[in-house]
């Protein structure tokens, strides 16, 4: 466990000294501002069924930032070490593979949390300026950040895998971007046909469609199934990553 913390500390530090973290932070803040503005515009235009929280996380701007965050946060993790050849120094120190994978994933997760936190400030600011005139439902806010975290668990694990497969960061980024988009599109597709073909597909919709998850959670409807779904997938991709990194130790 000590080794894990040492590695985690190093990885988090590596994030803060690389420009990528700040680019992501800026990107999320700017796009977060845009989606917040869009949500306000909707509320201003007349009575609507959703709250400010719901509209913020269902804005187009939100989805834009959503897809860029994961590749940018994970592409460096393994690809850079492969390129530099430092995997060799890393794995000739007394470390276990799961400690390395866990630390890199953990650091990405920490950064993920860090880049989303400032968007909370928007709501806080609105509340402060308007003196509580705009309703900001607690449950919806909690639900939003909860599902954001769950989705992060999954997509970051997928990004880790992508990074472990190549020594080229750009390739890693493109791969993880593609995988994320694909997952999203499958979700949209199932959502569309799920509406037409009722019974057997209803469950699938609840499982796969990210759009639907966001819609429900940002209304404060907290469902355990998507959480389990993302956590399971995250675990699956982490195990895969572990295996890929361990590959050199397989006996052919």
């Amino acid at each position: 466990m000590r080794v894990f913390w040492i590695l985690l500390k190093k990885e988090v530090r590596a994030f803060f000294i690389s420009p990528v973290a700040y680019i992501v932070l800026a990107l999320v803040m700017v796009l977060g501002g845009f989606s917040f503005r869009a949500a306000l515009a909707i509320l201003e235009s007349g009575p609507s069924e959703g709250s400010i929280v719901t509209w913020t996380f269902n804005a187009l701007w939100f989805w834009l930032s959503y897809f860029f965050v994961f590749p940018l946060l994970t592409m460096r993790l393994f690809a850079e070490e492969k390129k530099l050849g430092t995997l060799e120094t890393l794995f000739t120190a007394p470390v276990r593979t799961w400690q390395v994978v866990g630390a890199k994933y953990g650091a990405a997760l920490v950064m993920y949390a860090v880049v989303w936190l400032p968007t909370l400030g928007n709501f806080w600011l609105l509340d402060w300026i308007t003196g509580g005139a705009v309703e900001i439902p607690r449950g919806a806010l909690q639900g939003s950040y909860l599902i954001l975290l769950a989705m992060g668990l999954f997509h970051l694990a997928m990004g880790c895998l992508a990074s472990s497969l190549t020594s080229n960061q750009i390739v890693a980024a493109v791969l993880s971007f593609t995988l994320s988009i694909l997952h999203f599109l499958i979700g949209v597709f199932i959502l569309t046909i799920g509406r037409k073909v009722p019974e057997p597909f209803v469950d699938l919709v609840h499982y796969i469609a990210s759009v639907d998850h966001i819609r429900l959670f940002t209304q404060g409807v907290i469902d355990s199934r998507p959480l389990v779904y993302y956590a399971t997938l995250a675990a699956f991709f982490l195990v895969l990553t572990h295996q890929v990194v361990e590959f050199r130790r397989w006996r052919p």
């Binding site: 040492i6 050849g85 430092t86 120094t89 000739t92 007394p94 470390v95």
Partner: peptide
Amino acid sequence: VGYMPEMAPLYQDMRVKEYLHFRAELK
């Protein structure tokens, strides 16, 4: 074992002392 790989791969964006501290702790 103290191993030094060919071409001495190192993290480029760390400082010498910081790197050695990290490695020493790891070991």
